[in-house]
Computed example of a mutant assay.
Amino acid sequence: MTEPAPRILIVEDEPAIRHGLVELFRSQGYALEVAEDGHAALARLACAQFDLVLLDIMLPGVDGLGVLRQTRARGDLVPVLVLTARGAEADIVAGLDAGADDYVTKPFGIRELLARARGLLRRARPAPASPSFRVGDALVDLARLTITWPGGQLELTAREGLILDFLRARPGVGVTREELLTQVWGYHDGTVRTRTVDVHILQLRGKLRQLPGGDDWIGTVRGRGYRWDAR
């Protein structure tokens, strides 16, 4: 029995770009739905399940960040690939912090966009190796995507939970960005040009600073990548 084609929701207000995305992903055999603004996107996400969302940030009505925040607040962990013309790191970080899994900046190449989409589709519903673990007094709950400790709690994105789980399973071992791209993001080619790993780690470290000793959880291995240093 043939598996159904992955369902993708394309949220883009510019007709030319929207048409191009529809033609591109339809040619790859995906099932598509389209939303032209944030309100339409939220309506579709509320009544149907998708395997991936391609989401423009600059939208009329509710912008892309608003769509992301409301979607995640409902507990929907559908993978979201943000499309943005903004190249500033602060804007990219804002998208990831709102719950995006990855991003591409316009103008983007067709091969790069398809590679990012396939990677997220392969990791659409990842299951953590362990549902929870402790680091000192802190409890990391990968099912609820929270870290709690006496006197505090913080929330993780699904991608941040996967990063923590992957690094923790390799204590003291330097993990390259390429390994993270293939094993956590699901890309076939870990050499794809993207800073998404570094930006996600930056965001995750910022959250971990809220808890005692959190600065020591993720170390940097010069010239290689990152390492789990928590004890």
Rank of each mutant, 00 (worst) to 15 (best):
D51F: 00
L68W: 03
V53W: 01
D76T: 03
E33M: 08
L77Q: 14
A46G: 09
E33R: 13
Q49D: 15
T84M: 06
P79H: 04
A41N: 07
R69M: 13
A40S: 10
A48V: 01
L68T: 10
G87H: 11
P60C: 09
V78H: 02
H39V: 14
R72C: 02
V80L: 11
L65A: 04
L81Q: 11
L77K: 09
V53S: 07
G75S: 12
A31E: 15
V82T: 06
R44Q: 14
L54I: 04
G61A: 06
L83H: 04
L65I: 15
L65D: 07
A43I: 00
G87C: 02
A35K: 08
A85W: 14
D51W: 00
V67T: 08
E36V: 15
H39F: 03
L54H: 01
G61T: 08
A48P: 00
D56A: 11
A40F: 00
A46S: 14
V78A: 03
V82Y: 00
L59N: 01
L81N: 10
G61Q: 11
G61F: 01
L42G: 01
F50M: 05
R72L: 02
V53N: 04
P79W: 05
D37L: 06
L52G: 09
L54T: 01
L55S: 00
E33I: 01
C47W: 03
E36F: 04
L59P: 03
Q49R: 09
V80A: 02
G38Y: 08
R74N: 11
A48L: 08
V78R: 02
V82S: 02
D63L: 05
L68N: 08
D37P: 05
A43W: 01
R69T: 13
L65N: 10
L32C: 10
V34I: 14
L45M: 14
D63H: 10
A73L: 07
